[in-house]
């Protein structure tokens, strides 16, 4: 069984991707070469930008099965409309019109059970792309990418997670920001969740909501405070009151900010910076051995 770590954050732009990519490097170098990085932020997959020498290994279209109505068989009974919880089906009997809106369809299959006339056939509908990359070290990067204009985040994430299942002994997931259902899908089944926050009022507010979610899901987690030194102490007070582990503090530094902006994995070249990630890994290993 592989060990699954998910990096999440309530607020966007706290440095989740920076932490995920640096942690990947540190895991490969200091812990287990058989580590896979999975980018679940399908709306804005940015992990790849940190790997300049990445080579595309595989590319698969992610599809969703959306039914189409064969109007020569349809009797316009509207049973499928009644079964569809997502209002994706329009049937107007007097004018013999029937159609399904792919952007509202969740591909649940209920209409197929509803139809007595064998008038529905599922067809693949492209919703995204899944790509695997060699990045020069470790097991590489697996990325999900939502097709622009599509709204089906969770099916793309689910597909990518299925592909990653047991593909390496350590799997590191980079989740989307926020606390919506796509975050739940990404975080689900994690053995440990790393929450990245920043010590600002926005960071704290969004962290509280994210902690609520992870606690509801009953998953073990710890917090990494990125950009430490900016903002105020309110995040620290909150974490202490709630008894939440601070895995590590990573100080804010304008030089770091510039290097991240270029998509650089700073741990590779800066020993002082790499130490932060070694500490995070040590803490997670302590947890794992318990």
């Amino acid at each position: 069984m592989s060990f699954k770590i998910t990096v999440a954050s309530g607020k966007g732009g706290t440095g989740k991707t920076t932490v995920a990519t640096n942690l990947y490097w540190s895991l490969v170098k200091n812990f287990d070469n058989d580590t896979l990085l999975v980018d679940c932020d399908v709306e804005e997959p940015d992990d790849l930008l940190f790997f300049k020498n990445a080579i595309l290994r595989s590319e698969v279209k992610v599809t969703q099965a959306v039914p189409e109505i064969n109007t020569s068989k349809c009797t316009y009974c509207r049973k499928c409309v009644e079964y569809c919880e997502y209002n994706a089906i329009t049937v107007i009997p007097p004018v013999q019109y029937a159609s399904i809106a792919p952007d509202l369809c969740h591909s649940c299959g209920a209409c197929l059970y509803a139809c007595q006339d064998d008038a529905l056939i599922e067809k693949d509908h492209e919703i995204g792309l899944m790509s695997g990359y060699d990045v020069g070290f470790g097991k590489g990067l697996l990325e999900g990418r939502l097709k622009i204009g599509s709204a089906a985040q969770t099916p793309v994430i689910r597909r990518v997670k299925k592909e990653a299942l047991d593909a390496a002994s350590v799997i590191l997931f980079d989740a989307p920001p926020g606390t919506s259902c796509s975050v739940v899908t990404s975080v689900l089944d994690a053995d440990f969740v790393i929450m990245v926050t920043e010590p600002t009022p926005f960071g704290l507010h969004d962290l509280k909501i994210a902690v609520e979610l992870i606690r509801e899901m009953d998953l073990p987690f710890g917090v990494v405070i990125n950009k430490a030194g900016l903002g105020d102490r309110a995040v620290y007070d909150y974490l202490e009151d709630e008894g939440i582990d601070i895995l590590e503090e990573i100080p804010f530094n304008e030089e770091y900010a510039r290097k991240f902006s270029e998509g650089m994995i700073l741990s590779r070249i800066d020993k002082n910076y790499a130490i932060h990630y070694q500490k995070i890994i040590r803490k997670i290993l302590e947890f794992k051995q318990q």
Partner: peptide, 14 residues
Amino acid sequence: SSAAGTTAAETVIE
């Protein structure tokens, strides 16, 4: 919750 416009149009057409 969704596709209200389509359903309303259905009524109008009917």
